[in-house]
Write a protein that binds this DNA or RNA. Structure first.
Lengths: 198, 198, 198, 198
DNA sequence: TATGAATGAGGATTCATTCAT
DNA sequence: GATGAATGAATCCTCATTCAT
């Protein structure tokens, strides 16, 4: 299971290159955000730009790959909590905050979330689906346990993360994102509010 | 003899042009976001670029002027609710949602909020101050009435709006921002949660 | 005898304005060089740009007026030395160095001399003529006294000044222009060299 | 692993392009002076602007490269005369005039010399150093032979060239620069003058 | 296949000059 | 006549992407 467009397994060296590129891109984007130039990614990967473009036809494609990876990671984390956490709400809570931490350490992730149309990362089908599923399950169980409002949905976590991303990008200060997330989490637990519009 | 920044009333025609520019800029930015080019603003205003630059030395300055205007409007709306609303929470609530509506109709506003460091719009001193004051007052009264959590602050509304901006920019769909705002509002009312980190 | 193009004496207030402009221009150009903007000249003169343009159809025209003035001054100085100096060479020498000092204090003068085609200031007929005449006379007398090489001409002083201007503009250091002028003066006295090419 | 400024030999085609650019730049600058636009250099070289910028990060950098080249040439010429000329003064003399000829054929060179602060071309370390050295040596030997005034210095040639550049830029006429240079050369030989100020 | 050189559209800003008031 | 607002051509530089080696 690799690129959706590729047909046959890459030659070993090509695969090695692809890996180097992805690793470099992850680091570069996380640190410097989307402004990172393709040439820089290439340099950091120790390959020529052309090689980067062979594997990713577009800067956007590369960014997506990187984001997909991050999201896959988030899904995995959620999955893990789903399996290990003692309490369903605890699982949800822990996951939420790990997502937050992840954003804190990745400028590009936050930029994408708060800047690009969500459709962009929606396209990233499998991952997103996976992420949505995990999210839904986490939310669902917490709801079943009566700890999250019944009208919430898995996707709302996306909404919330999107907001968190903006809070980070806007540099409101050290703890701002924690205030934000605390607030929102409380909102997700609230049961006395109006019904969430559809 | 007068300060360089001071505004001896502009000559009638200049004022007319300045207005045309501001109007054009507001429309253009609201519709096309910050990517809007100076030349386009000028064209839409029916003047030469030079004229735009005579009134606003920098694209950034123009953007700020537009944002300031919007924020001033938000502050005014808040002030109005402060004076007219029957109930303190009602005032806060109404204001929050009007802010939301405002964002919905202005791409640039949302982009600035979710993209620029908050310090950028913090600089816009008087307006921001006014806005923060109004916000604080609205929050304060609602807290006094026991309808908003006591550990909330006026600034948190900024945080929340910042997130809302991102939700809009990311185009999550028609009602997404309403879900978001409902959630957050409930969070602001929650009293059983953890204390908001400082 | 005023502007060559004007037909009738200016109205008193117009003349006053013209004077203010010229004074301002002289100061501004001397200090900031030719980069000085028309708007700045106008501001310094306390009039609108339009007024500057009424008197001088072109920046170039204004620059010329200023230069003419300076050159007229140099001619006058020469004339004075011609009349008062005890010794013909002394007159020439003193004049040469006063010209130097004048350049030192006027960025624009030096810039024009070292940058514009000489024809530009040649056009400034009467003045130039006057300057050339004075120069020729000073040189001539010094030659008659056997103190300047016989193949030198009045115009050579222009050449030399032109070079001096460049030395100043290039900022070779405090005394560079004095070394330069000393050298050249010695060259003008030399009698053992090759004949100056025509 | 090599210094960022170091020149791993360029790929053949890149070198070819670089050459085309340099050739074009030399011609364009020599002919049209510093006003020449980057786009024009590119066009004349038959490449895109981007290519020019790949080789020279800045217009200034390109100009410098061109000037360095010219200066290197002048140094080489001096070196040659140093080695081949029968007589030390003859070497100096010949070099001086070849420098003059070089200026005659290069507007930009003259513009730089007569327009930019000397520090600018002083920066061009190695070349300038070389040039100064050659100059000093030529002057020194001529002085040793009693043919150039003892208080002259290698740098004075720079001063003199600077002036010559201005004479050329100012277009005094066909032979003006020859008169100028003759004069100055005689000044450099003069021994009866005042001591050159330090 | 990898490389990295070449491409060139795109965009903010300046300033001499014109012209409506 | 004076004013100063308006004009807009001109220019340097960036960076995603293509393509010759």
């Amino acid at each position: 299971m690799h690129t959706s467009t590729s047909q046959r397994p890459l030659r070993a060296d090509a695969q090695r290159n692809r890996d180097k590129i992805v690793v470099a891109a992850r680091a570069a984007f996380a640190q410097n955000g989307l402004e990172t130039q393709m040439d820089d990614v290439a340099a950091q990967a120790g390959v020529g730009v052309g090689t980067v473009y062979r594997h990713f036809p577009t800067k956007d494609a590369l960014v997506r790959a990187v984001i997909v990876h991050k999201m896959t990671g988030l899904a995995a984390i959620g999955r893990k909590h789903l399996e290990t956490a003692a309490d369903p709400y605890e699982a949800f809570h822990a996951w939420l905050w790990e997502c937050g931490e992840t954003h804190v350490n990745d400028r590009a992730l936050s930029q994408v979330l708060s800047t690009q149309p969500s459709s962009t990362f929606r396209e990233i089908a499998s991952t997103e689906t996976e992420l949505v599923q995990v999210s839904s399950e986490l939310v669902g169980r917490a709801q079943a346990a009566g700890r999250v409002r019944p009208d919430a949905r898995g996707e709302d976590v996306g909404l919330v993360m999107c907001g968190l991303a903006a809070v980070l990008v806007s540099e409101w200060g050290e703890n701002a994102w924690r205030r934000y997330l605390t607030l929102v989490e409380d909102g997700l637990r609230a049961t006395d509010g109006e019904r969430l519009p559809d």
